[in-house]
Computed example of a mutant assay.
Amino acid sequence: MMDALLKGEQAVLGAVLLDPAQLEAMAWLTPADFYRPAHQSLFAAMRTLSTDGRPALDANGTVPLSWVTDTVTEARRHVRGLNAPYAHTLIAACPRPQNAPVYGRMVLEGSIHRKVTEHAVRLEQIARIDADQHQVESVLHHADVLAGALGDLSRRWGTEPRPVPPPESGPSALATPVGPEQTEDERFLLALLVGQPAAMGEVYGWLRPDDFAGAGHGELYRCLGALHHRGEPIDEVTALWEVQRRGLLVDGTLSREHLDGVFGGPGAGSAEWLGDRVIRSSVVRAAAGAATTIKALAEDEALAPGRLIGQALHALGPLDEVRARWRTAIGHPSSAPERADPTARSEPAARVHAALSRSAPRQSTPKSTPPAAPLAQPGTATTSLSRTSPSRRLRSTP
């Protein structure tokens, strides 16, 4: 974790230790947004104690020292290694308690990058596991979970979750390795389409050249699709003529040996069944490619959360397109992805509240400079902390 984010987490906790009222200004921040487990436990302890009505301020509005000690005691119930000196380290790390919402925005921004990375890595792993099994349900489920998380994070950040194309210099997905079984399925399908021209009508409506991963298979399918579209006969001669007309032999996309391997195939079987296997593989590859792209985006610390979420949603677009065609292939063309619409509008008040986390608090010019707030140690001299509001000074409990 970069040093600036660590300092941001420490500053948030220190601000609340100095001024517990800052918790009300950061209702949008959760313990899970903190990177360090100790910080998660401390922030959760602060919320728990605040809900229980602590700290109890006196008539002068001062904060008792027990607020610090009780927070550490409550947090130590869930994580080891915490002690009172670390609480004073947090207090010293906060330049100005009134800037707590801005520090909280830093914590939330880091949390968004981490959560997007976690979901993308999980989707990438599932896609690679299922690459040779032709199982797409699990992959699509995790893609829906990722899309739903992007929508939730966008609303927490205070922006609309809209797909945004990345700049031309943005990250591109690496090609997913293609197994020999997938290549064989494509070769058998192409041989079948050449040997049984009528079979082209079974797959033409939903299978696209981009669904083929084998070298040159997509372009050969494009040639067969062009013949079918023009109503011309499909056989080895017409297919070879279309390949030559498109210059695919000249530029090396296809070779005569490659074509002989396809044309010499069995030419028997079910085009619909083979096409289903090809498009299932395409779904898995699209999911893996989207996950790889999103992971690269989330690892870019310079990318603002709003842009990160928008570009991540855009990266899921190709997966949604091939998913729709796969559902057409299995006979469910009208079924929509089973996930919440990430572009659904959130409540305006919630969006405005989240957006405030990204804005600096309004600074009012004080009439006089407040004195440093002392942290009274029972039986010892007071120690200077950091500047805070006169109404939120820590005092020792009698």
Rank of each mutant, 00 (worst) to 15 (best):
Q40M: 11
L249M: 11
M200L: 14
P266C: 11
L13F: 04
V102F: 12
L57N: 00
S334E: 09
R162H: 12
R54L: 15
R80S: 15
D300S: 09
L82V: 12
G214F: 03
P163N: 09
R277N: 14
P20Y: 08
A27E: 14
T51S: 14
H229Y: 07
T383H: 15
T397G: 10
L57Q: 10
T89A: 15
E9T: 09
L254R: 09
S282A: 15
L227Q: 05
V203G: 03
V243K: 05
Q182F: 04
V278P: 00
A143C: 03
P161D: 05
E118L: 11
E168S: 15
A298M: 07
T328K: 12
P95L: 03
P163F: 11
P266H: 09
F188S: 06
T388R: 08
L13Y: 05
D144W: 11
A226N: 13
T238K: 05
M2S: 15
L49W: 04
A340M: 14
L313H: 03
S391T: 13
Q133H: 15
L49Q: 06
P390D: 09
G247R: 07
A87F: 03
S50L: 08
E219A: 09
V79P: 00
T117W: 01
V68H: 00
S359D: 15
P337F: 06
Y204I: 15
A56S: 14
D300F: 05
R345E: 13
R285G: 01
P342T: 08
P31W: 01
E118C: 07
A315R: 00
P233R: 05
I91A: 00
L18C: 06
V262Q: 06
A92Q: 10
W206Q: 02
L303A: 01
L274Y: 09
N60P: 02
T48M: 06
R280D: 08
F34G: 00
Q40E: 12
L174K: 14
A87S: 06
N83E: 12
L224T: 06
S111I: 00
P37W: 10
D130K: 13
F34M: 02
S335P: 00
A100V: 03
Q311P: 04
N99K: 09
R187V: 10
P166Q: 03
L190I: 01
P342S: 02
G289K: 00
S282E: 05
L248D: 05
R325M: 08
Q22Y: 02
H332W: 04
A56V: 15
T238H: 12
H78G: 09
A376I: 10
T183I: 13
P171I: 02
G261T: 07
D52Y: 05
A381V: 08
L5Y: 11
F34A: 07
R222E: 13
D185K: 09
A87V: 05
R155P: 07
H217W: 01
C94G: 00
D210P: 15
A288F: 07
V16M: 04
H353N: 14
G247K: 06
P266Q: 08
T397W: 12
S391L: 14
Q196P: 04
G269S: 00
D251P: 02
W273C: 06
Y35A: 12
Q377P: 13
V72H: 05
S172N: 13
A149R: 05
A143S: 11
V116C: 00
A349V: 09
D320R: 09
P85Q: 12
S154E: 02
